[in-house]
């Protein structure tokens, strides 16, 4: 299955792009997808502890099962206001 990954704020700089596609096995959860993302974008791995992750605009747990067409967003802590 294919999902889209989006990077925001300085994560986009660390990844050197704003988005990419991932082909994942059916039944992959978010944590497993993050392992693949960090392998492709090692600069993001150092930010792992502070990384916020959303799937289709919702904060979900790392064991959340991904589906075809999901939009995964990775970004640093938010700072609005």
């Amino acid at each position: 299955m294919r999902v889209q990954v989006h990077f925001f704020s300085y994560f986009r700089d660390l990844a050197a792009c704003s988005q990419c596609s991932l082909n994942l096995e059916k039944g992959t959860n978010l944590e497993q997808a993050l392992v693949e993302i960090h392998a492709k974008f090692p600069n993001l791995k150092a930010m792992k502890k502070s990384t916020l992750v959303a799937v289709d605009m919702e904060y979900v747990s790392r064991d959340h099962l991904l589906c075809e067409g999901n939009d995964i967003a990775l970004f640093p802590p938010v700072q609005g206001g």
Partner: peptide, 13 residues
Amino acid sequence: DGETQCDDPSTIS
């Protein structure tokens, strides 16, 4: 609203 694609648009399989 601008999007920049990865230089290497290949996907992870």
